[in-house]
Design a protein around this nucleic acid. Structure first.
Length: 424
RNA sequence: GUGGAUGUAGCUCAGUUGGCAGAGCCCCUGGUUGUGGUCCAGGUUGUCGUGGGUUCGAGUCCCAUCAUCCACCCCA
């Protein structure tokens, strides 16, 4: 069919069965997050562009290549948020929460936007569920946040996952490491593919993300960041690991794990799916002890993660929903109407059933046979039939679809009759 | 931004060396003058992605273009 309008590239419609899958997951996640002490935060989808330039950082792909930026008529430069952490940090400061006692813990479940080339598990509008815990530098919190992330996967029965862990240092020890790494890379410039070469100057850590074998070999010749950590970072990292051990959480040290956002400090982690799929990164996060300060607040330590919902659903079930066979919404009572008078009668007199049941009044005007089929399709347990006779006699034909028995029921008694069957 | 594959009915897909546009599923009607998932009989559904070219003739061959998917890249 020649469609007049199509959805934008990299966006998706979620409906019927797939929407039910989403809701199933969302309900479990919200429940789980509450158990770990998180409260919800919702922030605008649009933000000023500077928020991400300064937090996520120029030199990252997210900011340089993937942001949906646009200008308003008033000349403001806006962006559809590519991630949530910067918005939460902004909201934390803007709403005067800096003087709240203790650790503030927020969760969100929201759409993000990145102008990337779409492929399996990668969309331009995608959704993340995540948390931000603001106000504690304790390595035990790092472990608890990771525990929370794993609890989210557990809540939806996601299996075959690997937790990757690393420390990316802090402003004390990272500059030295970056300088040393850059020197090593510059000395071996020719071994880096031209397309990646500019990263040496701009952001050499980014090269750890490259899947190029030559680059990986070159990087392996340089001592990893774990050997450049300052004393404080080293202690923090080992305490995180100790707490994970206490919890019995298995992890893999990954010295090449560099999250693609510049604000991370110390702990970084990622959860990947053990499968052949390339888009195997399901969730990622880390500590960002300097972000709040960079956004204009006082120095406030924080940590968070985000989990990709589309990817996680993909991991949970490789079978896509077949919309043609997808079930429509299920109801308890289906009202078949023969004629417009009957439709009006049903509209008025069946509504009382909605106190105790899910009710669909068939207003399609199709034949009665088709309406009864419709009742089966919706898995209704009770069929009410209305025609001119029923309107005249102030009754419903009441049919129990499980037993097949049918009898007229006065409309004043219909609520009792429906309740009787549904309670069986 | 780079590479590869695929576009035919609402959906999933056949379509031979170029020769009448097809199947299954879904949907609709009837069998049952107002009632069931099964069964039987019948029926609707097409810019063959788009534009051009070759040809007596193009879904099929050629060129261009668009779209989608996959991979690289990056990340969730």
């Amino acid at each position: 069919m020649n469609l007049k309008y199509r959805r934008l590239k990299g966006t998706r419609d979620i409906l019927l069965e797939e929407a039910e899958r989403w809701r199933w997951c969302e309900e479990r996640w919200v429940e789980t997050l509450a158990r770990y002490g998180y409260g919800e935060i919702r922030t605008p989808v649009i933000e000023p562009v500077e928020l991400f330039l300064r937090s996520v950082g120029e030199g990252t792909d997210i900011v340089d290549k993937e942001m949906y930026t646009f200008e308003t008529k008033g000349g403001e430069r806006l962006v559809l948020r590519p991630e949530m952490t910067a918005s939460v940090a902004r909201a934390y400061l803007e709403n005067g929460l800096t003087r709240q006692p203790g650790t503030l813990k927020f969760w969100y479940l929201a759409p993000m936007f990145r102008h990337d080339r779409p492929q399996a598990g990668r969309y331009r509008q995608f959704h993340q569920v995540g948390v931000e815990a603001i106000g504690s530098s304790s390595p035990v919190l790092d472990a608890e946040v990771i525990q929370t992330l794993l609890a989210l996967f557990d809540a939806v029965d996601a299996r075959d996952l690997t937790l990757l862990l690393n420390s990316t240092g802090c402003p004390v020890c990272r500059p030295g490491f970056v300088a040393s790494l850059r020197a090593h890379l510059l000395a071996n410039r020719e071994r880096v593919p031209a397309s990646l070469r500019d990263r040496i100057e701009r952001n050499p850590l980014r090269l750890y993300d490259a899947k190029d074998d030559d680059v990986a070999a070159l990087l392996a010749e340089h001592p990893p960041q774990s050997e450049h950590l300052c004393g404080d970072c080293r202690a923090h990292h080992s305490q995180v690991k100790a707490s994970l051990d206490d919890l019995g959480i298995a992890y893999e040290d990954d010295p090449t794990l560099v999250r693609g956002l510049d604000y991370y400090t110390r702990t970084t982690f990622e959860v990947t799916a053990r499968s052949e799929r390339k888009q195997s990164s399901l969730a990622g996060g880390g500590r960002y002890d300097n972000l709040i300060e960079r956004c204009g607040g006082t120095a406030t330590p924080a940590i968070g993660f985000s989990l990709g919902i589309e990817r996680t659903l993909l991991h949970l079930d490789e079978d896509p929903v077949d919309l043609q066979r997808s079930r429509q919404s299920v109801v308890d009572v289906y009202v078949a109407c023969s004629g417009e008078t009957a439709q009006r009668y049903a509209l008025v007199h069946a509504d009382i059933l909605r106190d105790i049941a899910r009710v669909e009044i068939d207003l399609s005007g199709r034949g009665l046979k088709a309406q009864v089929k419709g009742a089966n399709l919706r898995l209704a347990r009770i069929l009410l039939v209305v025609g001119d006779n029923e309107v005249r006699e102030r009754v419903f034909q009441f049919k129990n679809l499980a037993t097949g028995t049918q009898e007229p029921v006065p409309r004043d008694e219909i609520l009792r009759a429906v309740r009787e069957v549904l309670e069986q």
